[in-house]
Amino acid sequence: MTRIRVQPTGRESPFREDEIIVSKTDLKGRLTYANDVFLRVSGFTAKDVVGQPHSIIRHPDMPRTVFKLLWETIEAKAEIFAYVLNMASNGDHYWVLAHVTPSFDAQGKVVGYHSNRRKPHRDKVEKIIPIYQSLLAEEAKIANLKEGMLGAYNHLMSDLSAKGIGYDEFVLSL
């Protein structure tokens, strides 16, 4: 599937607080499953997304730094909580509080990843927006995308270290 570049609309794609968005990916982050809520909120069909990178729903205002941290965590066989701004197929956005975990086989080998996402409280989103804007600004300071992301990542890790907390603790403390 070739994805046409969609511009953010500034409109929110609604979903209810009692709904859970669920997806599963393989080890490379390609979608292997998306529940009905995922499909409805994102505006994609299962045919559109299965086999595609999970980043198909990445919003351009979402810092790459957070995804670097997410991947490091789950590849280390740990779980992570993170606020994520996603983009639907029509450019609408939706915030989630994601809980991402590795999926293990009977021998303890990681075989994929599983994510449950809930609608976050608006006050939490209002607290994370300026932090993510700051990370995006850090990322943009260096023209090279990877180096910019690493600079923002180091900035984030330094801030968390100065506060004496890890990322999960920080996210859950908001």
Score class of each variant (00 low, 15 high):
Trp95Asp: 02
Thr65Val: 06
Ile57Arg: 03
Lys124Ala: 12
Phe67Asn: 01
Phe67Thr: 02
Val49Pro: 04
Tyr113Asp: 13
Gln7Asn: 07
Asp18Ser: 06
Asp168Cys: 09
Lys109Glu: 14
Ile20Leu: 09
Ile74Leu: 05
Met62Leu: 12
Asp159His: 13
Arg117Phe: 15
Phe38Pro: 10
Tyr153Thr: 08
Ser55His: 10
Leu160Arg: 07
Lys146His: 15
Met62Phe: 04
Pro14Arg: 12
Gly112Asp: 04
Val41Leu: 03
Met62Trp: 01
Ser161Gln: 14
Ile4Ser: 10
Ile4Thr: 12
Arg40Ala: 08
Gln133Arg: 06
Asn90Tyr: 15
Ile80Gln: 05
Phe67Glu: 01
Tyr153Phe: 12
Val100Asp: 03
Glu19His: 01
Gly166Glu: 14
Val6His: 14
Gln107Ala: 11
Gln133Gly: 09
Val22Arg: 08
Ile56Gly: 09
Ala34Gly: 13
Arg11Trp: 07
Lys68Met: 14
Asn86Leu: 04
Lys68His: 04
Gln7Cys: 03
Val41Pro: 00
Ile80Trp: 00
Trp71Gly: 00
Tyr167Gly: 03
Ile165Leu: 12
Lys119Ser: 14
Gln7Thr: 09
Glu12Tyr: 07
Arg5Thr: 12
Arg16Asp: 08
Gly112Trp: 01
Val49Arg: 08
Phe44Asp: 00
Lys163Arg: 15
Ala88Thr: 08
Val22Trp: 08
Arg117Gln: 14
Leu136Lys: 12
Asp123Ala: 09
Tyr33Ile: 06
Ser134Trp: 13
Met149Ala: 10
Ser55Asn: 13
Arg3Ser: 14
Tyr113Leu: 10
Asp92Cys: 05
Gly166Cys: 07
